[in-house]
Design a protein around this nucleic acid. Structure first.
Lengths: 156, 156
DNA sequence: ACTTGACTTAAACCTCACTTTAACTCCTAA
DNA sequence: TTAGGAGTTAAAGTGAGGTTTAAGTCAAGT
């Protein structure tokens, strides 16, 4: 009972077993194997999974999460210091996203009166303007809010 | 020159031509055709595209956008009233998202000290708790932030 | 020993929002 | 009239983040 099966880890973390196997394929997780080839996780996997879940909430991609996990000293349980360092990064990320959404909302407010929806003048439709409103120096919307750049149709 | 080709509409809206055709297949756009079968858009398509772009920024899915567009009296250019009605909906949506992110950030702050990452106790890893912190009555994270519910691994 | 539920794998499938490709036609300026 | 850029279609591809399926193996209680 000192190690966990996939099913147990799944029940206790709230992830699906398929997700745990997927995370292993993606290098976010690893497991010992029994003689018969079944996974056995140390209890620390739950902490690791909590970390992954939290990171996903913050909006990090699996690539970014893998990178963050790789920065944690390998087979040591993360310390308070590790957690603090990383959570600062997440905080920045969240702040960026919040700022972008607030800018968007305020732009929306200032747009309610005009009814223009003009491509060139309406803040809502123009990511560049939003970027500008966040201050100087090439600010952009954080990843999850950023438009995938069109390959076609270079803007006039 | 009173109507636009796909290419012109693409250049002037910033969407790729492939996106415009895709939107038409998806019922978000429609176009007249020339004798030869080419699309000709009225200038109002630019307003419609601006609407779509804005809605995408707000985080609406194409399904939701189609629904919103269908509520606009069909072949009439949206009035200030239409725009106001809809932008109020978007505002709410943005506010929900902002609140959820702020709750997440504040949870992160309160977590920095504890270093727990405990599945049951850490706000960051527990969407239900975040929902609770937003007030009573089954509040959840807005769509883009909401976890896709696992089919497997029903929480213990 | 046997039954049963949990486990294994590779590979296929899923959604979303598009893009790319292939093979072809249209339109316009010279 | 012809070159060639712009347009057309259906179908397949992309990428993120997994889930589902098929065909089988393992582990544990009785």
């Amino acid at each position: 009972m000192n190690s966990l099966t996939v099913g147990e880890a799944a029940r206790r973390s709230g992830f699906a077993t398929s997700a745990l196997r997927f995370y292993e394929r993606e290098g976010l997780l690893s497991a010992e194997r029994t003689e018969g080839g079944q996974r056995r996780y140390p209890r620390s996997v739950l902490r690791r999974l909590a970390f992954i879940r939290a990171a996903r909430h913050v909006g990090l991609t699996l690539d970014e999460i893998r990178a963050a996990l790789d920065e944690l000293p390998s087979s040591r349980t993360p310390t308070r210091a590790d957690w603090t360092r990383i959570s600062k990064l997440w905080r920045e990320r969240l702040n960026e996203e919040i700022e972008a959404l607030v800018a968007l909302r305020d732009g929306l407010d200032s747009c309610i009166g005009c009814g223009c929806l003009s491509l060139k003048r309406c803040l809502m439709s123009n990511p560049g303007d939003i970027a500008g409103s966040l201050g100087p120096g090439a600010q952009y919307l954080p990843k999850p809010l950023r438009e995938p750049e069109p390959k076609d149709a270079t803007p006039s």
